[in-house]
């Protein structure tokens, strides 16, 4: 199958350099032709395990264990206690 690597990259917010494109195309085609060999199985694919149901936490506000400064310490760019990103609205 022909895989449109540039299209997939765009969907996944990736860019593939031109010099690597043909290698990526070849690899993706061989990976897809490997994984597509699957039998026809019918059934419901919900995948839920009735023996071990998931348990959600109570819907209550979390106790704030971390300070704003701790949470923002990893941000690449900050100004006035806020994360800086490029302009998103014209």
């Amino acid at each position: 199958m022909n895989i449109d690597v540039q299209h997939l990259a765009k969907l996944a917010r990736l860019r593939i350099e031109d010099e690597k494109l043909s290698k990526f195309e070849k690899d993706m085609e061989s990976i897809v032709s490997m994984v597509e060999q699957l039998p026809d199985v019918t059934g419901d694919a919900s995948g839920l395990d009735p023996e071990h149901p998931m348990k959600l936490r109570e819907d209550v506000p979390a106790e704030d264990k971390l300070s704003r400064a701790e949470l923002l310490a990893n941000a690449p760019k900050m100004q006035a206690g806020c994360v800086v990103v490029p302009k998103t609205v014209e």
Binding site: V5, A9, A12, L14, M28, P86
Partner: peptide, 27 residues
């Protein structure tokens, strides 16, 4: 732009195998 930042960050930050898996999953 924001999209430009996302795409460059992810392209420079991830290695080739991670990119392959992300694209396979997207596919």
């Amino acid at each position: 732009s924001l999209i430009d930042m996302y795409e460059k960050t992810r392209s420079e930050g991830f290695g080739d195998e991670v990119k392959r898996r992300i694209m396979l999953g997207t596919f």
